[in-house]
Design a protein around this nucleic acid. Structure first.
Length: 105
DNA sequence: CCCCTGACGTAAC
DNA sequence: GGTTACGCCAGGG
């Protein structure tokens, strides 16, 4: 049988793996993760929502394009607090990507 | 099978 | 810089 990883690895697992590797104090965007995981940005959000808490992923380090918080107010506030706790700089409602972007050269 | 919704992104206004 | 529109793909009714 084709024990190919991809066959048994839904896009979600690839996304989780990538998110897991985001260093503390840094962030990545859905779009970027999607490019690395080879899937649409929406699927990244879908995968994260599906992950839940048991997966122990730094979900709060994933933000929308332009550093915007994509989650609704309640969860969005929690995400922001967590990020600030890690020293992630904010500029108004957005994360300062140039300062904390994971892939920032 | 059709339609709506969603943790997105980009372009246009 | 905020809002609208559309494309995108997966789930749920």
């Amino acid at each position: 049988m084709p024990s190919s990883d991809d066959a048994f690895r839904p896009t979600a697992e690839r996304v989780w793996e990538i998110v897991r590797q985001i260093p503390r104090g840094c962030v990545a965007t859905y779009g970027e993760i999607g490019e690395e995981a080879d899937c649409n940005a929406r699927q990244v959000g879908w995968a994260l929502r599906r992950a839940g808490a048991g997966r122990r992923l730094p979900w709060h380090r994933v933000v929308a394009a332009q550093g915007r918080i994509a989650l609704p107010e309640a969860a969005g506030l929690e995400q922001r607090l967590r990020l600030e706790q890690e020293g992630v700089p904010f500029r108004g409602r957005r994360v300062w990507l140039d300062q904390c972007r994971r892939d920032r050269a």
